[in-house]
Design a binder for these strands. Structure first.
Lengths: 110, 110
DNA sequence: GAGTCAGATAAGTGTATGCTTATGTTTCTT
DNA sequence: AAGAAACATAAGCATACACTTATCTGACTC
C-alpha cells in the first residue's frame, strides 16, 4: 500500500519539478480545457504539450476526459491530496502565524 | 517579491524531485543532526550528501547551524511554508474531507 | 605545529529528461 | 471515402543532474 504512495509521491514531485508543467497545471486549475487551448500563448510544440500532459496524468495531478476528437483536461484532486498528505507529515514544522496556513491546517484537520 | 517566490518554488520542487533528498529531509524531520549522522545507514558518499544538503539548503527546506567542526542540520519551516502556500492556491480542488484521502489510498491498494 | 576529522568544493562521467521532427491513430466533416 | 483536425507516440539529440574520485578548508587533538 505505502509502496504505491511512494511511487505516486515520486511521480508528483518529478512532475512539478518542471516549470512548464507547473504552468500547465496552473492554467488548468483556472479552467479545464483541451490540449490545443492549453497551448495558446505558451510557446510550446504540440508533442511537447502532449508529453507534459502524459507526465501530469501519470502523477494524477491532471485527468483527461475524451470528447470526440478533443481531450479535455482538468485538475485531478488525487494528486493534490497526496501533496497535502506529504505536507501534513511535517505539520509540526509549519510556522504558526501565517493566516493562509491556518486555513490550510483547518481544512486538512477535518 | 513574487519573482523570489517563483525562484524558491522552483528550487523546492527540484529539490524534492530526488528520492534521496526526500529521504534526507524526512530523516531531519524526525531529528536534527549533522551530515555524518545523516549518512548512517544511507549508502551515500560524503560528497553526495554534502551536495544534496546544499540543494536542500538553497530551497530553504533545511538550514544549517555550525557547531565547531560539525554542522548541524534541521528542517527549515520556510520551505514547507512555501509548499503550503503553493498548495493553498488549489484549495478549491482538494477533496472535501480526509475520507477522500482514505478512499484514494484504498483505491491505489487495489 | 602536525595530524586528523567534518564537511565543502572541483572536475569528470553516465544517465535522465525535455525538446525536436516525423509519423501514427482516432474522430469529425464534406 | 477522402481529407483534415486533435492528439499520441517514436526516435534522435542536447542539456541537466546525480554520482564518482580527488582535493581543499576549517576546527579539534596531541
Amino acid at each position: 500500500m505505502y509502496a504505491y504512495v511512494s511511487f505516486m509521491e515520486h511521480d508528483i514531485f518529478k512532475a512539478l519539478a518542471d516549470p512548464t508543467r507547473r504552468a500547465i497545471f496552473e492554467k488548468l486549475a483556472a479552467a479545464g480545457m483541451n490540449a490545443s487551448a492549453l497551448r495558446e500563448g505558451m510557446a510550446i510544440s504540440q508533442p511537447a504539450m502532449s508529453q507534459h500532459l502524459a507526465v501530469l496524468r501519470t502523477a494524477r495531478l491532471v485527468r483527461e476526459e475524451r470528447q470526440g476528437r478533443f481531450v479535455n483536461y482538468e485538475v485531478d484532486p488525487d494528486g493534490l491530496a497526496l501533496i497535502a498528505q506529504w505536507l501534513a507529515k511535517y505539520r509540526a514544522y509549519w510556522p504558526a502565524r501565517i493566516d493562509a496556513l491556518k486555513d490550510l491546517l483547518r481544512d486538512m484537520d477535518q
